[in-house]
Amino acid sequence: MPVDASLVGRTYPPTRPYPVSEAKVRELAATTGADWDGGPVPPTFPILLAFEAMNAFLEAEGVELARIVHGDQKFRYERPLRVGDVLTAALTVASVRSIGGNDVIGTTSEVRDADGALVCATSATLVHRGGAA
């Protein structure tokens, strides 16, 4: 079992600094059919940071991405994201439970700006589907 309770409380190194660009905001907004014109950055944007932090965590623990199903995701914003922000995310393993042959991993990630100020706190539950892995 690649994921076990000994990981609870561990915080992984922050992701490399990520500059929020107009092009990326427009590209992500367009996936929902929106034509972004300089308005608010879509609130799901920090998933880019959280996802990179999650990938680094899975890679560090040798977990195959295709066996992960996303159980939930919650965001709490300290302030709106802005084009020009340079952000990092650091993931902490909050909980690991084994339910019906699956590992259910609770994570939290803090997204911070270049000054180190918290922009967004996000939590995700990752379900690692057991089986032949």
């Binding site: 929902t32 159980g71 939930d72 709490r76 939590s123």
Partner: peptide
């Protein structure tokens, strides 16, 4: 997250792009 992004787009339309303070769901 794509489904949640669609929900967030609906919220933006309903609220005329109000500042979002919290967003979340279980999948």
């Amino acid at each position: 997250m794509y489904t949640l992004a669609l929900a967030a787009r609906a919220v933006a339309t309903w609220t005329d792009d109000a500042e979002v303070l919290e967003l979340g769901a279980k999948f």
